[in-house]
C-alpha cells in the first residue's frame, strides 16, 4: 500500500518507527488546516505561520508521546490550540504593560473598514471582515469552540476531547457563542448604519 493511502494514525505509526516520509505526508495533510485554525485565533498570518511550525515541530519531537487510542487530529489540534492560547495570553500580558493597551486589547482586531478587496466581491469581503472582527471580540472559550466547530468543522465529540469538557457543555457553549457572535455583528451593522 502506498504511503498516501494510509490514515493519519497509520502514518503516525510509520513515523514512530522512523519513517520520515510519513512525517512529511502528515505535514502536507495538516499544514493548511492548522494555519486556518491558528490564524482565526491570532488574526496575524506571520504569527500563525510560526505557530503552525511550532505545532509541527512538537509533532516531530514528541512523536512517541502520541498513542493510537486518540485520533491524530484530536492530538494535533490540542497542541495547536494550546500554543495559540499561550500566544494570546502572552499578547495580553504585553498589552498590559504597553501604552497601546489603552486602545484595543488585542492586536489587529480593528473595526472593519469599507476597503474593497480587488479579488473578492465587495459584499463577501465585507462579510468576511466583519465575521473576523466578531470572532476576535469573543471571549477565548467561545472563540475556541467556534473555530473548532465552524471553521474546522469538527464533531462535538472531538471538540469535547480536545477541550476536555463534557459533550453537553460543548453543545451549549457553541450555541451561546454563536448567539453572542450574532449580537456583535448586529451592533456592527448598527454602527455602520446598515
Amino acid at each position: 500500500m502506498a504511503l498516501h493511502e494510509y490514515t493519519d494514525e497509520e502514518l503516525m505509526e510509520r513515523f514512530q518507527d522512523g519513517n520520515e516520509s510519513a512525517y512529511l505526508l502528515i505535514v502536507e495533510r495538516f499544514k493548511d488546516r492548522l494555519f486556518n485554525f491558528i490564524y482565526r485565533f491570532v488574526n496575524d498570518a506571520d504569527n500563525a505561520e510560526d505557530l503552525v511550525q511550532d505545532t509541527l515541530i512538537k509533532v516531530y519531537t514528541h512523536r512517541h508521546s502520541y498513542r493510537e487510542i486518540a485520533k491524530f487530529s484530536t492530538w494535533v489540534y490540542t497542541i495547536a490550540g494550546n500554543l495559540a492560547r499561550t500566544e494570546l495570553r502572552k499578547r495580553k500580558r504585553r498589552a498590559t504593560f504597553s501604552m497601546s493597551s489603552l486602545g484595543i486589547g488585542e492586536k489587529d482586531y480593528e473595526i472593519p473598514s469599507e476597503d474593497e478587496s480587488p479579488t473578492k466581491d465587495h459584499e463577501e469581503a465585507q462579510t468576511e471582515q466583519n465575521v473576523r472582527y466578531a470572532l476576535g471580540k469573543l471571549p477565548l472559550h467561545f472563540r475556541t469552540v467556534i473555530i473548532l466547530r465552524d471553521v474546522q468543522e469538527l464533531s462535538y465529540e472531538e471538540i469535547s476531547k480536545i477541550m476536555k469538557i463534557p459533550l453537553g457543555t460543548v453543545k451549549s457553549r457553541v450555541n451561546r457563542a454563536r448567539l453572542r457572535m450574532q449580537e456583535i455583528l448586529k451592533n456592527l451593522d448598527i454602527k455602520h448604519g446598515g
Binding site: 499544514k31 493548511d32 490564524y39 498570518a45 505561520e49 468576511e128 465575521v131 465552524d150 457572535m181 450574532q182
Partner: peptide
C-alpha cells in the same frame, strides 16, 4: 439567516495562505 451566513463565511478558507518557503 445570520447564523447560517456566518457559518458559511467561517468555513471558507482565509484569504491569506502559508508562505512558499514554509516547508
Amino acid at each position: 439567516a445570520g447564523l447560517e451566513k456566518t457559518r458559511i463565511t467561517l468555513a471558507s478558507e482565509p484569504s491569506k495562505s502559508l508562505s512558499a518557503d514554509f516547508m
